[in-house]
Amino acid sequence: MRRVTQSGLLMVIGVIASIAAVNGIYLNFVKPSLRFPILAASLVLLLMGAYGVWEDRRHGPQEDASRPEDDGHGHDHARGPRIGWLLVVPFLLLGVVAPPPLGSYSAAEDSGLVTVTNADGLGALPPGDPVALTLAEFQGRALYDTDRSLENRRVTLVGFASPGRPGEWVLTRMSLNCCAADGFAVKVAVEDAPPVGVDEWVEVVGTWKTAPLAPEGGADPPLPVLVVEDATPIAVPENPYE
């Protein structure tokens, strides 16, 4: 693989990565805070590729004079391994078919309880009726808030349906520490909810089904329950993760 070809591959990868960062596809794989590092890395790849092409044109194609083109065994050392072309395949696929965000398959083996073990830092529940919360905040308030801030308050939660007990579904949202490779599920049980297909996204309005608080630092408690008033199908959010 000649240097100009290697440089061209760098530029292709840089272009596709930058497009993914601009059009939002990157949100299927990493947290929003990584957008600008991705753009910066894309720019570096583009500059490296452009410099390599410029150098090749300025000096002409050059091979490594220290290596013979043929070692007498039919191996051409003037070219790099063709398998190097495979490096660009994942990026080309990303430009053609964007893989979906993590869904019910990834959530299936996860208990859905976040690592929050207390209600520290939650503060007072914001005003509004209903008030919009993340699934993680709903869990924290339902399981550990001694002020019982969810009592008699209508809330709005957004997530997708994942399988629960037979004939039931659980409102779910995947969360990331950094990227999709370390994603984990956050779940809220629902009651009186209409049937919803697996992986279908819904905006749910309801009230917390009052239950005893969970002991801090103890074994995993049951999922908190939302008694559903309304469940509206929605499109996948621009950022599918919490």
Rank of each mutant, 00 (worst) to 15 (best):
R3H: 10
V4C: 13
V4W: 14
T5C: 06
T5V: 15
Q6A: 14
S7I: 05
G8A: 12
M11I: 14
V12Y: 02
V15M: 12
A17S: 14
A17T: 12
N28S: 06
V30I: 15
V30E: 03
K31M: 13
K31D: 08
L34G: 01
P37K: 00
I38Y: 00
I38H: 00
A41C: 09
L45K: 00
L46M: 14
L46N: 05
L46C: 11
L47K: 04
G49K: 04
G49V: 09
V53D: 01
E55I: 12
D56C: 12
R57D: 07
R58E: 11
H59V: 08
P61F: 11
A65F: 08
R67L: 15
D70E: 13
D70M: 12
D71K: 03
G72W: 01
G72E: 05
H73W: 13
H73L: 14
D76T: 04
D76P: 08
H77V: 06
A78T: 08
R79V: 13
G80R: 08
I83A: 15
L86G: 10
V89R: 03
P90M: 09
L94R: 03
G95R: 02
G95I: 06
G95S: 07
V96H: 03
A98H: 09
S104P: 04
Y105L: 13
S106T: 09
A108S: 12
V116Y: 06
T117Q: 15
N118L: 09
L122F: 10
P126G: 12
P127F: 08
G128K: 06
D129L: 09
D129F: 06
V131I: 09
V131S: 05
A132N: 06
T134D: 13
L135I: 11
A136H: 03
Q139W: 03
Q139A: 08
R141Q: 09
A142W: 01
L143S: 07
L143Q: 07
L143K: 01
D145T: 03
R148P: 00
E151L: 14
N152W: 02
V155G: 08
V158P: 03
G159Y: 03
A161Q: 04
S162L: 06
R165K: 13
P166R: 07
S175P: 02
C178E: 01
C178S: 07
A180W: 00
A181R: 00
A181K: 04
G183S: 08
G183Y: 01
V190C: 10
D192R: 12
V196Q: 05
V196F: 01
V196D: 05
V198G: 02
V198L: 11
E200S: 13
W201C: 11
E203N: 05
K209P: 01
A211S: 14
E216Y: 00
E216G: 06
E216H: 04
E216F: 03
E216L: 10
A219R: 04
P222M: 08
L223A: 04
V227E: 13
A231G: 10
T232W: 02
P233N: 07
I234K: 06
A235M: 08
P240Q: 05
P240E: 05
Y241K: 02
E242W: 00
